[in-house]
Simulated assay, not measured.
Amino acid sequence: MIEGSMDRIKENIEAWLKEDIGTGDVTSISTIPAEHQSIGYIHAKEMGMLAGLPIAKLVFEIVDPNIIFSEQAVEGSILNKGDTIATVEGNTRNILIGERLALNLMQRLSGIATKTNQYVKELNNIPVKVVDTRKTTPGHRVLEKYAVKVGGGFNHRMGLYDAVMIKDNHIKATGSIKKAIEAARNQVPHTMKIEVEIEKMTEIEEALAADIILLDNMSIDTLTACVNQIKAKSPHIILEASGGITLETIRGVALTGVDVISVGGLTTSVKNLDISLDLNEKKVIVQ
């Protein structure tokens, strides 16, 4: 996914750098000679899963192609406190210009990957996919969904354009679940799946015309009953559970027999992983 989006990511990085730099880094310009060279060490300050390493490298490449970025850790690996993630060597001013954006992105993406991996591990090999939602930071969706994949999760639709997902407001506007599904079938290509959200068992019969049924905000007992009823009638339908799912509840939800569990919290309730960059005083070189 991220490979096909690199042009857009580069454009975003350039815009984010411009937002931060403005007319220039007045602190570095006023305190550090223009020709000053340094080696910086990017390291983890707490345990977590690493994501965003290629993005951090790209930030420094855009700031200064002469900066040497050397990876010391592997994307998707578990970091321990104190582990060195990468070194950056080159012009000191430019290292400091790229520092904050590179760290911000890597901290955010590592936090998402870490949380996703926690959810995936809770399933303990139950054959259920943990997927993200559209609840992403504007302008960062591609990166955040990439981080979910690094953490072992899967992506739901990327946007409004790549799948039909009929939710409560669509049903209200259309008049019924049946009418909404029929309208979608008449409009979209046969290759596009149609998903519909239901909140109670009485809506199952109409929803069986869809390819995917989202079981939203249900108790374990109701969820189990819905899964059993739907699979007995239409075993080909993909079943997705969503709504307030936590690390404490996801295993119980998975055991109901659903195929997919979507968790908005993978990208909305995330603690950034603490990552820092320090210059090594002993290896600073002035030309």
Rank of each mutant, 00 (worst) to 15 (best):
K10P: 04
I32R: 13
I171A: 00
R157G: 00
G48H: 07
H190R: 13
E122C: 12
A73G: 11
L109F: 09
A232Y: 14
A113C: 06
A86M: 06
N91E: 11
D274G: 07
G152H: 15
V150D: 09
K233M: 14
F69W: 05
A241M: 10
K57H: 10
E203C: 04
G52Y: 07
R108P: 05
E281D: 13
I62Q: 02
G111P: 12
I13M: 09
K200W: 04
L273E: 03
N217A: 00
F154N: 13
L160T: 02
R134G: 03
A241G: 09
I177M: 06
I198L: 02
G4Q: 11
D20V: 05
K149I: 14
A147Y: 10
E75T: 13
N272D: 09
M165Q: 02
D216Q: 05
H170Y: 01
G151T: 08
S38M: 12
N280A: 12
D20M: 10
G264Q: 09
N104P: 03
Y161G: 02
D221G: 02
N228K: 15
I285P: 01
V164R: 00
F60K: 04
T87R: 06
T116N: 02
D278P: 04
I177Q: 05
E203I: 04
G40V: 05
V74R: 05
A86E: 04
L103W: 05
Q229I: 14
G139D: 09
Q37K: 09
F60R: 06
L247A: 11
V59R: 07
